[in-house]
Amino acid sequence: MSLDDLYQEIILDHYRSPRNRSADLDPHDVHVHHSNPLCGDELDVRLRVDRSDPTAPTVDALAFDGDGCAISMASASAMSEAVVGRKLSDAEDLTEAFRLMMHGEGVKREDDLLDGVAFQGIAKFPVRVKCALLGWMAFKDAVTTYAAGRDEHRVTND
């Protein structure tokens, strides 16, 4: 396994030019803060939900911000592109597809993951898998928090 598996050009591109990275999202419906004290990663995800179809709420907009390694920040960026515009239930399913991919259990919904597919090689670096998952897990938590009728959730992982 080589360094190129860990830091592919697509990943470096998201790291150097992050998409949807912003300290705020105005307005937003839910804000989650996830931290990993072991590596010191901090991540904020803000989510705005489009409720024009009450039966199928949709990710209207998402902003992330944080402090962490290249993998964690690039993965949050790639996640943001993949989930915006999707129904919440569909985006949750996509999150599960990403999680399974990172645990080496095959690639589902390859086209929908967009640049998220580039993180597949990180499954070979067990200590960095949690870095790649940070953004996706924060997004999943944002959806769960929203569904529970709350607008704020802080989580400490390790």
Binding site: L3, L6, C39, D67, G68, C69, A70, R128
Partner: peptide, 13 residues
């Protein structure tokens, strides 16, 4: 602008 884990990984190589 660089995270220590990224620095450590590249330096290891």
């Amino acid at each position: 602008g660089l995270h220590p884990h990224d620095i450590g990984t590249i330096m290891d190589r």
